[in-house]
């Protein structure tokens, strides 16, 4: 078993993701221009900049307090559909860590699953609707399969699986969100939400391992 994850590690994860989002504002917005409303990159960038200043300006007593603050910050700053979805993810992720003394691989897996369940409840998405859930669902499975090998292996497997799920969204017909208005014309475009969700897991693999 790897060592328990620290508050510093979680902060590094979120800061790494904020940086990745910032570096990819153009990509995320271009993907969203094709099938949505051209704001995913700028909204996520605004939200995670706010997260970084919250992390820098506050001390947190526990991971659940940190992630609940992160969730509320996202709900309050991102807007669009991404705000409630990412906000709900981190709120539920934090709730799952409440009272947990040491966050090991199992606890992290449970928190990820709780976060994704929150996304599904809020967004009512199903598999192959061409949403971020198409990256999350295979990632959770891969995480659990690799969990016996430890946090690093589980997160690496999850990030890889998320990337495959993200790539698979290209051929899907959108059935949720603004992309669903396009019908057949949504086919051939990679889903922006699945793209940012994959980046979140890649950042986790890079910082929490």
């Amino acid at each position: 078993m790897a060592e328990a994850l620290t508050l510093d590690a979680f902060a590094r994860w979120l800061k790494q993701f904020a940086e990745t989002v910032h570096d990819n504002v153009g990509l995320l917005t271009d993907l969203d221009s094709a099938i949505g409303d051209a704001d995913h990159g700028t909204n996520m960038d605004r939200g995670f900049k706010a997260v970084v200043s919250v992390l820098d300006g506050n001390g947190f007593e526990s991971p659940d307090a940190l992630f609940k603050k992160v969730g509320m910050t996202l709900v309050s700053t991102v807007g669009g559909a991404s705000g409630p979805l990412y906000g709900t993810f981190f709120l539920r992720f934090g709730s799952a860590l409440q009272g947990v003394e040491a966050v090991g691989t199992q606890e992290l897996g449970k928190a990820l699953r709780a976060g994704v369940e929150g996304i599904v409840t809020r967004g009512k998405a199903e598999l192959e609707d061409k949403t971020m859930y198409d990256a999350w669902a295979p990632a959770l499975e891969a995480f659990d399969r690799a969990a016996p090998e430890g946090t690093a292996a589980a997160l690496a497997a999850a990030a890889t699986a998320a990337g495959e799920g993200r790539d698979a969204t290209t051929d899907m017909l959108a059935r949720k969100g603004r992309a669903s208005y396009l019908g057949e014309r949504s086919i051939g475009h990679q889903d922006p939400g699945a793209t940012s969700a994959t980046m979140l897991l890649e950042s986790a693999a890079a910082t929490l391992a």
């Binding site: 409303d37 051209a38 704001d39 700028t42 909204n43 605004r46 709900v75 309050s76 700053t77 991102v78 807007g79 669009g80 559909a81 705000g83 409630p84």
Partner: peptide, 11 residues
């Protein structure tokens, strides 16, 4: 008022 083409937030 939200940002351009972006929903306002619950607050």
């Amino acid at each position: 008022a939200g940002e351009v083409f972006t929903s306002p937030v619950p607050d």
